[in-house]
């Protein structure tokens, strides 16, 4: 589904004349229906890796090969911007720690619009949006409000509703349960597990080791921009435990 080869990302900060190597020759593959979780310390390059796939960061070198629904393969590291716009609508989903959605539209509206973007027709989109919002446990009383007035956890769930609605081939999740309380966290983890069961490939970042254990089919440990270890969840978590 996704095949990352020799991915490098170097940030050059002009103001201070310094460069930062965030990713150094990362190789990583996500198979169909696989849920690969990235773990590692802050600054290890987990989010940058997701962004290089989503292409909100420009890879410096390497390949990010994505197999499209029609079987063709596209290198996201070199795809032109216009292709990326289309891929984002059709093939990719991205849920970040921060609300990317429009702050000045009602919650419901925001989700419906994403559904439309994913190619659902008018009525279906409304139903799908309502379904997605219920699934993440957002009560109808909140649907008419604007995301900007919601709590962090509620916003997070709006994001998830958008990301998991008619899920694309590859879903990128960046700390999706970071700001959720126990109950909502449970619901969201269940939702993510459900999405993966439908055959969607997931590449995610979690700090929550319990979540990793429950969801991951494979875990990749990043350290200072390099893949330090890779394997079964238990194996890697154990390795991490040893490190600690």
């Amino acid at each position: 589904m996704l095949d990352i080869r020799g991915l490098e990302k170097r940030f050059f900060i002009h103001a201070i004349g310094r460069q930062v190597d965030a990713l150094r020759r990362v190789d990583l593959a996500v198979g169909p229906g696989e849920h690969v979780v990235l773990v590692g310390a802050s600054g290890a390059g987990k989010s940058t890796l997701l962004k290089c796939v989503w292409r909100s960061c420009l890879p410096t070198a390497g390949e990010v090969l994505l197999r499209r629904a029609d079987g063709t393969v596209v290198d996201l590291a070199r795809a032109d911007d216009r292709t990326m716009v289309e891929l984002r609508d059709e093939q990719l989903g991205y849920v970040s720690q921060f609300l990317g959605a429009d702050q000045r539209r009602s919650v419901h509206d925001v989700v419906v619009r994403s559904a439309l973007k994913r190619g659902l027709a008018g009525d279906e989109a409304g139903d799908a949006a309502a379904g997605a919002l219920r699934q993440v446990g957002l009560g109808e009383e909140l649907w008419a409000t604007r995301p900007v007035v919601l709590s962090g956890g509620e916003q997070q769930r709006v994001n998830l509703a958008i990301g998991t609605l008619r899920p694309p081939g590859l879903l990128l999740l960046d700390e999706p349960v970071a700001s959720l309380d126990a109950t909502n966290r449970e619901a969201v983890l269940e939702l993510i597990a459900g999405v993966a069961r439908t055959g969607v490939s997931v590449l995610s970042v979690f700090h929550d080791l319990d979540a990793v254990r429950r969801l991951a089919t494979r875990v990749v440990l990043l350290e200072a921009g390099r893949v330090a270890a890779e394997g079964e969840p238990g194996e890697i978590l154990e390795h991490m435990g040893v490190l600690r």
Binding site: H14, S56, L58
Partner: peptide, 18 residues
């Protein structure tokens, strides 16, 4: 030139970064 969120996230040119 680039995707709008990419420019915000990862501006390349010194001027864009400013």
């Amino acid at each position: 030139g680039g995707l709008t969120d990419q420019l915000l996230e990862d501006p390349q040119h010194a001027y864009s970064q400013r």
